[in-house]
């Protein structure tokens, strides 16, 4: 005796009503927690390793920052003049040891001015040598 079993197939429905709501909540989360702005800055070429005694020759440009004024080789300059004078030296075309620009600063110099001077030295192709006092 043959039985015919008829399977009653039910259409399985995934509830998709709240699908877009969840998706938009996720979008709002990503918009609030992320930043898409490009970071700007400069890569410094600070000499790595232990402190060394740099032989300061007459030709080594030295920048002094202190008390709101800027000196290049003991001559008072503005930031624009510093940029122009360092560009004129064409440091980017020289050998590494001739690209050093010594940077000396007073202990109370704020990072804003220090940052601008470092950016100018780096943009002109110089390698920053930080002068430190022995304690």
């Amino acid at each position: 005796m043959a039985f015919s079993i008829t399977k009653r197939k039910r259409a399985v429905d995934i509830p998709l009503d709240s699908f877009s709501d969840i998706a938009f909540l996720l979008i709002i989360f990503f918009i609030l927690t992320t930043s898409i702005q490009k970071m700007t800055g400069f890569q410094t070429e600070l000499p790595a390793g232990e402190k060394s005694e740099v032989k300061q020759t007459e030709k080594t440009p030295t920048v002094n920052i202190g008390a709101g004024r800027l000196l290049l080789n003991e001559k008072s300059v503005s930031l624009e003049q510093l940029a122009a004078e360092l560009q004129a030296l064409q440091l980017g075309t020289k050998a590494d040891d001739q690209r050093v620009v010594l940077l000396d600063s007073a202990p109370d110099v704020e990072y804003q001015l220090y940052f601008e001077v470092m950016a100018v030295i780096t943009a002109s192709g110089g390698v920053i040598g930080i002068l430190t006092e022995d304690k």
Partner: peptide, 12 residues
């Protein structure tokens, strides 16, 4: 953040 004219894009 400090500001400067001489900056380029950097890897984040």
């Amino acid at each position: 953040s400090p500001t400067s004219l001489n900056l380029a894009s950097v890897e984040s």
